[in-house]
């Protein structure tokens, strides 16, 4: 144990003096402990990989800047850096929850673009023009009730007042208007879907 600590310290000072291989040895020696430590906190291999990398980038920068002053305690120092980065990760994620789309829930099932694309807007125009043509075929009294109800959003009470017929008659005309429209649609095989 003591031997390894001394070796770490020696490797660190060799690295600071410019021996790049010393860093490779240090990473190789401690990679499993550091990686497992991070993984035990975040339980995600990609995030572990990122935090592992950020940890050593900090280590490298600190050593190269000559700011390292904990000789003999290399591993605990690296572990502390990793620990702080894990905390940073959780802080960042609590502010901005991440949807990794890995489970059953897909974020795209609730995030959709409601605007119609070019094809759908052409189909919608076609359907609307077909409906208008079918309405034009209706008897005048039925057409009048249907237009007031569907396009002017009037209640049957208002329709009955406007047309001078009872509410029941207005309801009946609406009913026949819809039945007749369905008949025309079926007879002519008109497809009104988009």
């Amino acid at each position: 144990m003591r031997n390894e600590l001394i070796q770490d310290a020696a490797l660190v000072s060799n690295y600071i003096r410019g021996d790049e291989n010393a860093l490779a040895v240090l990473i190789e020696r401690h990679k499993q402990k550091i990686y497992s430590f991070i993984y035990s906190k975040v339980y995600d291999k990609d995030i572990t990989e990122d935090i592992f990398q950020d940890t050593f980038i900090k280590v490298i920068r600190t050593l190269k800047r000559g700011k390292y002053n904990e000789e003999g305690k290399f591993l605990p120092w690296v572990m502390r850096i990793a620990h702080n980065l894990v905390i940073d990760h959780f802080r960042k994620n609590s502010r901005m929850p991440k949807f990794d789309n890995a489970g059953e829930f897909s974020i795209f099932s609730v995030l959709s673009d409601n605007s119609l694309n070019a094809e759908k807007s052409i189909i919608k125009e076609q359907v609307e023009s077909d409906v208008r043509r079918i309405i034009e075929e209706l008897p005048e009294d039925q057409k009048q009730v249907l237009l007031m109800r569907m396009y002017q959003d009037m209640s049957f009470k208002e329709i009955s007042e406007r047309t001078g017929v009872s509410i029941n008659t207005a309801l009946g005309r609406m009913r026949y208007a819809l039945i007749n429209m369905r008949k025309v649609i079926e007879q002519n095989n008109i497809i009104l879907t988009n």
């Binding site: 190789e28 990686y35 490298i60 190269k64």
Partner: peptide, 19 residues
């Protein structure tokens, strides 16, 4: 539970490139 080889390589390359 060990990092990928490419992660380690990236770190070593970063170290060599940084002065």
């Amino acid at each position: 539970l060990t990092p990928k080889d490419e992660t380690i390589k990236r770190l070593l390359d970063y170290s060599k490139a940084l002065s």
